[in-house]
Amino acid sequence: MTTVTATATPVPPPPQGGDNYRLALPNTASAAKVARDFVTSLLGVNRHRDLVDDARLCVTEVVGYFR
């Protein structure tokens, strides 16, 4: 079992005109799908559809790393 220790740090303010989003997920098999869907919906709303495929892949890798 891998143990990850994190310390709380202040969240910096979003860049001027930017938005800040946070998603907390339990360590379950469905976490990667939920994270991918979350990122897809954010990029679709913000008109960055050209980034969706790459972002989904990156999110899957990050969430899978900590699984």
Rank of each mutant, 00 (worst) to 15 (best):
G64K: 09
V62Q: 09
A35Q: 05
E61D: 11
R47C: 07
D37E: 07
V11Y: 11
A6Q: 10
V11K: 05
V4Q: 13
Y21I: 15
V52A: 06
Q16T: 13
P13R: 13
E61R: 03
A8M: 06
T7W: 07
G18I: 00
L25T: 03
R47S: 04
P13K: 07
R22V: 02
T2F: 05
R22M: 00
N27G: 12
A31L: 01
R36G: 08
L51I: 11
A55P: 05
K33V: 09
L51T: 10
V39L: 05
F66L: 12
R67G: 15
A8N: 13
T40I: 01
P10N: 06
S30V: 09
L51W: 11
A32K: 09
L23H: 06
A24E: 06
C58A: 11
E61F: 02
A35L: 14
Y65F: 09
R47W: 04
L43K: 00
N27H: 08
R49T: 15
R49W: 10
L25W: 03
D54I: 12
N27E: 04
V45H: 08
P26D: 12
G44R: 15
V52E: 05
L23Y: 04
M1Y: 14
A29V: 03
G64A: 04
D19F: 07
P12F: 03
R49L: 06
F38H: 06
P12I: 01
V59S: 01
L23M: 14
V52L: 10
Q16D: 14
V34W: 01
P15Y: 02
F38N: 12
G17I: 00
T40V: 01
V45K: 04
P12E: 03
D50R: 15
D50Q: 05
P13F: 06
T7V: 13
F66M: 10
D53G: 09
D37H: 08
V63Q: 08
A31Y: 00
S41N: 11
R47G: 07
D53R: 07
R36Y: 12
L42Y: 06
V4D: 14
G64P: 00
P15L: 09
D37N: 09
T40K: 06
D54K: 08
V62G: 02
D54A: 08
P13V: 12
V11C: 10
V63F: 04
N27A: 11
Y65C: 11
R56P: 15
R67S: 09
R22S: 15
A31F: 03
P13G: 15
Q16C: 10
A55K: 04
R22L: 02
